[in-house]
Simulated assay, not measured.
Amino acid sequence: MSTTPPTAEQLRDAAGRLVAALGAHDDPEYRLAVLKRLSRRLGEDQYPMFLRLLGVVAESDDHDAKRLLAETVATALRRADLPGGALSSWGATRLPDDVTGLTAGALSGHFFGASPRRMLGPVEYLLVWHLQRTQRTSLGVDTFRTQLARLIDLLNHSPEARQLYPQKLAADAQNELEGAYTRATRTRLAAIAAAWQAGRPPDEVAQSALDAAHADLPPGWVVRDL
């Protein structure tokens, strides 16, 4: 499989095909199936590509396309079935309880275990990618803020998505399930939800995540762009 990054033209073409497929049927369930099929075909490791396709639509001047995509996400929110990507849970990898009597060969493979992964919707994925230690190199501040603002602007094209998504984030902020979100992440989920529900502009909603109680990243972390 080629690892060459897609060109801007290829991204626009793929986003256009996605919108055309969503618009080919009036059934909201069909549209959600199309969106989820795209996410599955790209695979867990390529979920950022799925987010980039959403970003292409968000940056366009096609308000009908934005509304169509946002309404499809609203359907997913109603069903609690968002097309998601997997990020490893923070602090989840552990050493075996007993490391005595092992040969050198026993250190190969999955000796250290594999961190459990959580499926996250688009907004939650961006926040966890930016803030928590996962299998990915951390997402930079500027890229996080820009991509989150674009995504919120896109979702605001559906009144239902604009109502349901911040409600979901507010509920997630109360979820203390071990390994899903750190305390700092839950604080920022709550900040995004509050700003979004208050009707603040997308740029301000994204900035609210950065203005919330600050949690420094561990020293020496490298950040990357989407």
Rank of each mutant, 00 (worst) to 15 (best):
D98G: 04
G121V: 00
G121T: 03
P122V: 03
L102V: 13
L107E: 01
T103W: 10
L126V: 11
T103L: 13
P116A: 10
S115A: 15
E124D: 11
D98P: 08
G109Q: 14
D98K: 02
L120F: 10
G113F: 05
R117Y: 00
F111S: 08
P122M: 04
V99G: 01
G105I: 07
A104G: 07
L126M: 10
P122E: 04
H110R: 09
T100G: 07
E124K: 03
F112Y: 00
A104D: 12
P122I: 05
R118M: 03
G121H: 00
M119T: 15
V123C: 04
P96Q: 00
L126T: 07
G101C: 09
P96T: 02
L107H: 07
G113W: 01
F111H: 14
P116L: 07
A106D: 15
R118Y: 00
Y125R: 05
A106Y: 06
G109H: 14
A114T: 14
T103Y: 10
A104F: 11
F112G: 04
L120S: 07
G121F: 00
S108M: 08
E124A: 11
G101W: 06
G101H: 12
G109M: 13
G113A: 09
S115M: 10
H110T: 14
L126K: 06
S108Y: 08
P96A: 00
V123E: 02
Y125N: 07
H110C: 04
P122A: 09
L95K: 11
Y125L: 05
R117W: 00
L120N: 08
A104W: 08
V123N: 01
G105Y: 07
F111C: 09
D97I: 12
L120P: 05
G109E: 15
S115D: 13
A106P: 07
M119R: 15
G121E: 01
L95V: 13
E124M: 03
T100Q: 04
E124I: 03
G109Y: 13
D97F: 08
M119V: 15
D98R: 03
S115Q: 11
L120C: 07
G105E: 14
L107C: 02
G113H: 03
L95F: 13
G105F: 04
G121W: 00
S108L: 12
F111E: 09
D98H: 04
D98T: 05
Y125H: 12
S115P: 14
E124S: 14
A106R: 11
